[in-house]
Amino acid sequence: MKLKNILYPLILLLMAAGCKKEDAIVPDKIVPEYSLPQGNHPYDTQIIDFHNKYGCYILYRFTEKDFKWNITNNLSYTADQGDENYIAPALDALDKYLFKFYSQDFLKKALPYKIILSARIREITFYNDTLATPVNSVSAFSHFAFGRAGSSLSGMTDDELRVMKSDLHREFWKQAVNYGKITLPPAFVSATNYADVFDWTKKYYGVFMPDVNALSPDLYGDFQGYIDVIVSNTLGEIEQSLFLPANDPNGKYKLKYNIIVNYYKEVYGVDLQGIAR
């Protein structure tokens, strides 16, 4: 028997086996990382509505990983669970001091994956001790955290509330800008060569150094300093302080201030100056 007479039927069998209809590929079902509601309170409905509108989770029950994880490192803070007796006023405070100043469209762009409500946030020192003074807000890659979801909120003075408001906006903008959700003004980015700036020359370049431990200034820290100033001071107050020649000899603070204010008003419709009124 010739070899081809043996191989030909074998090839046909292999071809038939290869053409056998395969089972349909069923994609794996993606399970959400978090489940809402977390409890059975009236405010849980508000949290669900917020998630449905913006795609952002608000968590008052969270793990250490939820709070600390920041891609390549952990936040040097510790956070207590939110006090479920005070979540409703914490949500009201977020709306009053933060959310109401931005449009729905902007919030959809700028909000993080989750907002963590903590009764108390404290900084961890180099020696692994915990500083007693509570922190209003911190942020990471996927969240910003509010540290007043507890009894301390009701006892805050007007000055403390003003600082809290500034801290909330700073951390909100920090996570939005640092991780590319909202763009920095190109003119602000190009306005300063930070390699030329030192603590004793910062006013000549219009630079803020909010991190007291930083050896040198950087673009994002500088921007956060401007957000702090803009949202906590009216233009009139700034003109009588920061913009005075003694503090702004080269007019750089005023220049960069106007760059930020005008850019976000024109591009995103955000009135940053209106936050301090």
Rank of each mutant, 00 (worst) to 15 (best):
M164Q: 12
V163Q: 14
A187S: 07
A145E: 04
D199Q: 11
Y179G: 01
A187T: 00
M164L: 14
D159Y: 12
T192C: 12
E160W: 07
N178E: 08
N178W: 07
G155Y: 09
T183D: 14
V163R: 11
D158M: 05
G206K: 14
L153M: 07
N193L: 01
M156T: 12
P186G: 05
D158F: 11
L161T: 09
R162D: 15
W173C: 04
G155F: 09
E160D: 13
T192H: 01
M209C: 14
S151R: 13
V189E: 05
S142T: 11
R148A: 14
S151M: 10
S190Y: 04
Q175N: 06
F198V: 01
N193H: 02
D196M: 06
S151P: 08
M164I: 01
E171T: 03
E171H: 04
W173D: 00
K174S: 10
G206D: 13
V197E: 07
F146A: 05
A187Y: 00
V197H: 01
V189I: 12
P185F: 01
S142F: 04
F172V: 03
L168F: 08
W173P: 06
N178D: 12
S190G: 00
M156P: 06
Y204L: 13
L161I: 12
M156S: 12
N178M: 08
Y205M: 11
P185W: 01
I182Q: 00
E160S: 14
D199W: 03
V163G: 10
T183N: 09
S166P: 07
V189D: 00
R148Y: 15
R162E: 15
D167L: 01
G147T: 07
G155A: 11
V197F: 08
S154F: 10
R148F: 12
T192K: 02
L184K: 04
T183Q: 10
G150Q: 10
G206S: 14
Q175M: 06
N178C: 07
A187P: 00
M156L: 15
F146V: 05
G206V: 11
F208S: 13
G206M: 11
